[in-house]
């Protein structure tokens, strides 16, 4: 600054002043334009992110609504196709002419009607159990998962085992049901798509964190696949898992074991939020 003052004289002064002013103005305007365009770019990026997040939320919501509708349709079909005809048949056995029939036929009809009513009771119980497993309600997540794994294992198709290491304090009943549904969905996926020969589930805690980890030796997915499927229209079950875990503020990780032999799925929950 001072150098400029000392060294310049005469015509040079005008030249320095002219180009200096032009240069300063160019720099200032350039800086302002840069700031405006940079900020516009950042805002557009934020808006895109926001929009993507909203779209994903919408997809998750749609997935959960569709699943709910499918569940309702299944229950309606079970009631209409199975319980309805059974009760109609029982009614036939107990028609008004029953009093006019001989005693043996009457007894036979009553016995048949009783059998059908028993079957209907069993059917309704099954439907009710599929909505809320009684083991889960009465004995908790550990027993319900054990029960589920025993049933799978006893089918002989796949070797299923589970071990809960630290489950003295149960999660809230509603949250247990959500975790159980997530486990069911994961098992369902493994059975349907992976061709695995075994599934192993372990439960652990670490400080405030609650973990459930499943291993299997079939064909699985990685976190990248999970995120990709979550953003696409496919993968209804995975979206359902995501939306259920969102309720619990939980997270899920899909990864391939370091040995490249197994696939791992880890569910992570905060104990304080869910107990």
């Amino acid at each position: 600054m001072l150098l400029l003052q000392v060294n310049t004289s005469g015509a040079n002064v005008s030249l320095v002043l002219f180009f200096g002013t032009i240069g300063m103005l160019a720099l200032t305007i350039g800086l302002i334009v840069f700031i405006i365009f940079h900020q516009r770019k950042v805002i557009r990026y934020q808006m895109t992110l926001q929009k993507m997040e909203q779209e994903q939320q919408k997809m998750l919501l749609n997935a959960s609504i569709r699943l709910q509708e499918e569940e309702r349709q299944r229950i309606a079909a079970d009631l209409h196709d199975d319980a309805g005809p059974l009760l109609a048949t029982a009614r036939l056995y107990l028609n008004e002419n029953l009093v006019n029939l001989d005693k043996t036929t009457q007894l036979q009809s009553i016995y048949n009607a009783k059998q059908i009513i028993d079957d209907t009771i069993q059917l309704i119980r099954n439907i009710s159990h599929s909505l809320m497993p009684p083991t889960l309600k009465n004995f908790g997540l550990e027993s319900a998962v054990n029960d589920q794994f025993q049933k799978i294992s006893s089918s002989g198709i796949i070797n299923a085992s589970c071990r809960f290491h630290d489950y003295k304090e149960r999660l809230q009943t509603d949250n247990e049901l959500i975790v159980f549904r997530v486990i069911q969905e994961l098992i369902n996926n493994i059975l349907k798509h992976s061709n695995a020969s075994f599934i192993h589930l372990t439960q652990n805690t670490n400080g405030n964190k609650f973990y459930i980890r499943m291993h299997h030796d079939g064909k699985g997915i990685t976190q990248a696949d999970f995120e990709r499927m979550n953003k696409s229209a496919a993968g209804l079950g995975l979206k359902n898992i995501q939306s259920r875990l969102k309720v619990l503020h939980g997270r899920i990780f899909f990864e391939k074991d370091a040995s490249q032999t197994y696939y791992k799925v880890t569910i992570e929950l905060n104990r304080e939020d869910n107990q």
Binding site: L4, V13, L17, T21, T28, L31
Partner: peptide
């Protein structure tokens, strides 16, 4: 503020070195 102070920076810096006619024109 930026336009004014950057635009007049060299003018005020060189003001004392300018001739009277240049002072008027600049």
């Amino acid at each position: 503020i930026m336009i004014y102070f950057s635009g007049t920076f060299f003018l005020f810096l060189q003001y004392e070195n300018l001739s009277d006619s240049d002072k008027k024109s600049f």
